[in-house]
Design a protein around this nucleic acid. Structure first.
Length: 440
RNA sequence: GUGGGAGUAGUUCAGUUGGUAGAGCCCCUGACUGUGGAUCAGGUGGUCGCCGGUUCAAAUCCGGUCUCCCACCCCA
């Protein structure tokens, strides 16, 4: 047996210092979700392959997934995304209060070569609103995204929420002579616009579509950055899709969602999106990939029988988000370094260990996080460890303290130390915590 | 699946025309048997990714292979 020191390619392995950063980001996102009344849920990591064949698109379900047979020969898959499982849960739940507003932080899996911002195992922040047909759902998604970014200290100037609509794109393309069958292919062409230099993309489109009015229309459409673009109004001005995007644009302006911008070239890759689609992008140019992708899906829940329920949702990649935050130095200093422990209990010798342990337990009962020396090394070494751990307080117990029923309490930052009676220790420590909270 | 780059100590890296490996940081110990960050001294630590070839001799040259990173495909 040859044991590797590394985990399988692309699999997550977070050491505590990485986990602290993840926890910080997760907590911020969770709070943002709660601010809008989203409730957390979870679903299976392993699903029947069929669940994803139906709507996610063949490439994602088959070529880019971990799928396998179990011992009874069933075709299974490690979920590449969460939405189909969510749709099933909603379809099969008995009574639900509408609209359903759920969030989740699923680990998902894709079988592809890892690169910057892409791993084979990754966590995403998923939020969905189901059972709301109006644009209020889209609006709330945008607000939630903005609040999430704000909660992580991201300014409006370095990101955007770019949105468009698949219905709009379809209407524009049909008006320009494309057939329904060509639609997904045409979406794909539009989607690639940001991935290559403008001229190269134009040549590519002409090559794929032909040098005719249709390719010129597609090129023109993808360039629209304003819902009032005359070309767009002329092509699809009389359609519901156009009215919808104008209305969304109006709502966003009315509420003042500054990062939201219309961009006709946004179509997103997942096949089940039917209406408004959106993505969060870095506008500072440091991260090429979209941080988040989402949109409205009209017939996903209906696949499971019963009534058709429309939903809007997004997936936000924790890895891309973290790279984004790091590239703008937005992870607060304390997050990576800070220890979860409040106090380090040093012990002079084993004679005082019992006394020190009782003190430590008393503190823990009072809700204070305490780490106690286990090494029996000299005080100098114990303090050195406490310092390295970044613990704000240290308690010292030696023969004198044990005899007098006291403890030395030291503030590591200021190096000041005082004698405290053992009974008063919990209150003193908690008072210290309150003070330092107020400072920060 | 396609293309590019890289693998030497825990880590960042150096290593000349082939002559059997070195530095900073980290870690451990001591100066310092009741107090961390500083300083000084010492110490642990390597299958030079792996296998084969050329050679008296390979981290170095050649072939193969594995792994990681970056980009493409696709997407969070």
């Amino acid at each position: 047996m040859d044991l590797r020191k590394k985990p399988l390619q692309g699999m997550r392995q977070l050491y505590p210092e990485d986990m602290r950063v993840d926890r910080y980001v997760l907590d911020a996102l969770h709070s943002a979700g709660e601010a809008y009344g989203f409730e957390e849920f979870d679903a299976p990591v392993i699903e029947p392959l069929d669940l994803f064949l139906a709507k996610s698109g063949n490439e994602l379900a088959v070529e880019q997934s971990y799928h396998f047979q179990d011992k009874s020969g069933r075709e299974l898959i490690l979920r590449p995304e969460l939405t189909p499982s969510l749709a099933r849960m909603v379809a099969s739940a008995g009574e639900l209060l509408w609209p359903v507003k759920w969030m989740s932080f699923p680990l998902c899996y894709r079988y592809e070569r890892p690169q910057r911002g892409r791993a084979r195992e990754f966590r995403q922040f998923n939020c969905d609103i189901l059972g709301c047909d109006s644009l209020q759902a889209e609006l709330e998604m945008f607000l939630l995204l903005r609040r999430s970014m704000e909660g992580l200290g991201v300014g409006d100037d370095i990101y955007e929420i770019a949105y468009s609509s698949r219905r709009l794109a379809a209407a524009a393309l049909v008006a320009s002579g494309f057939s329904e069958d060509e639609m997904l292919g045409a979406f794909h062409l539009v989607d690639r616009r940001e991935k290559m230099p403008a001229e190269e993309w134009e040549e590519y489109v002409v090559e794929e579509v032909g040098d005719d009015d249709r390719s010129r229309a597609l090129l023109r459409f993808a360039r629209c950055r304003d819902v009032e673009d005359p070309w767009l109004e002329d092509a699809v001005g009389d359609t519901e899709a156009y009215e919808e995007i104008v209305e969304l644009n109006r709502l966003l302006e009315e509420v003042g969602v500054a990062p939201a911008v219309f961009d006709a070239s946004v179509v997103r890759g997942l096949d089940y999106y039917t209406g408004v689609v959106f993505e969060v992008a870095d506008t500072g140019g440091r991260n090429r990939r979209a941080l988040c992708g989402g949109g409205r899906y009209d017939d996903l829940v209906g696949l499971f029988g019963g009534k058709r329920i429309s939903g809007v949702g997004f997936g936000l990649g924790m890895l891309t988000l973290r790279l984004f935050l790091e590239s703008y130095d937005l992870i607060p200093q304390g997050v990576k370094e800070s220890s979860p422990t409040t106090l380090f209990m040093t012990v002079m010798s084993d004679q005082q260990r019992g006394y020190a342990l009782r003190l430590a337990e008393k503190l823990r009962s009072a809700g204070v996080s305490v780490e106690m020396d286990m090494s029996g090394r000299n005080l100098s070494r114990q303090f050195k460890l406490a310092g390295k751990r970044g613990v704000p307080l240290t308690a010292v117990v030696g023969p004198d303290e044990a005899a007098s029923g006291t403890v030395g309490l030291k503030d590591m930052e200021s190096s000041s130390q005082e004698e405290v009676k053992a009974d008063e220790l919990p209150d003193r420590v908690k008072a210290f915590c309150k003070d330092s909270d107020r400072d920060t």
